[in-house]
């Protein structure tokens, strides 16, 4: 059961990483990356590292997403 959870989460992680790399829409990439961080946070928690999970949730899903959005706002939404 635990291994199944890990497998599903890792598959999700891989899918999101590929989607982030492939999409040309930077806004979508930033949101997908936030989802990636949330899955990563669950994986850290499952691996017994709640402190890393806290940091991942606050920085990965929260702060970096806002910084990405600000950067997109200052430049442009489409990847050239």
């Amino acid at each position: 059961m635990s291994a199944l959870f890990d497998l599903v989460m890792l598959a999700l992680l891989l899918g999101m990483a590929l989607a982030v790399a492939r999409t040309r829409d930077l806004l979508a990439a930033a949101i997908l990356f936030s989802g990636y961080s949330l899955v990563m946070c669950l994986l850290w928690l499952h691996r017994g590292a709640p402190d890393v999970a806290m940091t991942e949730a606050a920085v990965g899903a929260g702060v970096t997403t806002i910084l990405f959005l600000l950067a997109i706002g200052r430049t442009g939404r489409r990847e050239r």
Partner: peptide, 26 residues
């Protein structure tokens, strides 16, 4: 709590800092 109890529970300065920072940004 995360800062103060980082000595005994999971957590510590970095974790408390990012939580507080995310709150301030919010």
């Amino acid at each position: 709590l995360v800062l103060w109890h980082g000595e005994a529970l999971p957590g510590g300065g970095f974790q408390a800092g990012v939580i507080l920072g995310a709150l301030l940004v919010l």
